[in-house]
């Protein structure tokens, strides 16, 4: 049992685990390995998000998983105050991140107070644990550019 070897002080993650579908499984499997990947068409090379089985530009079924830069900017954000989101101690900052690759991804911005949130602020990916031993990509303010 892994629990026996775990430090007793480590708090158990309370964030709910990703909801995995067949078409998004490779994304979440990569996140478990702390890799932030995107879906690119194997034929025409265009990025698509959310992931889907067919490229809307050339209708290819060839999907290529590519490692993303993990860099982006805050395109929009909100702080859910009521009802308090399940699984969070403090109300999180939820944001739509515009990734450098040109696709948008809903996530959290961590390590920043709500007052310091700015539109278009540069952010970079990191990973946080969830219930059931999964991980998901969140973002923090980018230190160097």
């Amino acid at each position: 049992m892994t629990e026996a070897t775990e430090a007793p002080a480590t708090p158990k993650p309370t964030r709910i685990a990703p909801i995995v579908t067949l078409d998004s499984k490779s994304f979440w499997d990569a996140a478990d390995r702390e890799e932030f990947v995107g879906q690119k068409c194997g034929d025409c090379g265009q990025f698509t998000f959310p992931p889907r089985p067919m490229c809307p530009h050339c209708h290819s079924l060839a999907r290529v998983e590519v490692k993303l830069s993990g860099y982006g900017t805050v395109h929009s954000y909100t702080i859910p105050r009521h009802p308090h989101p399940f699984g969070f101690k403090e109300a999180p900052v939820v944001a739509v991140i515009l990734l450098d690759e040109g696709i948008r991804f809903v996530s959290n911005v961590v390590g920043v107070t709500p007052e310091d949130m700015k539109f278009d602020m540069p952010v970079e990916v990191m990973f946080e644990p969830t219930m059931n031993q999964h991980k998901l990509p969140v973002f923090r303010p980018r230190s160097t550019r």
């Binding site: 964030r15 998004s24 859910p80 989101p85 969070f88 969830t130 998901l136 969140v138």
Partner: peptide, 8 residues
């Protein structure tokens, strides 16, 4: 699906 785990 892409919102809920982030508290939205």
């Amino acid at each position: 699906l892409w919102c809920v785990p982030f508290g939205a």
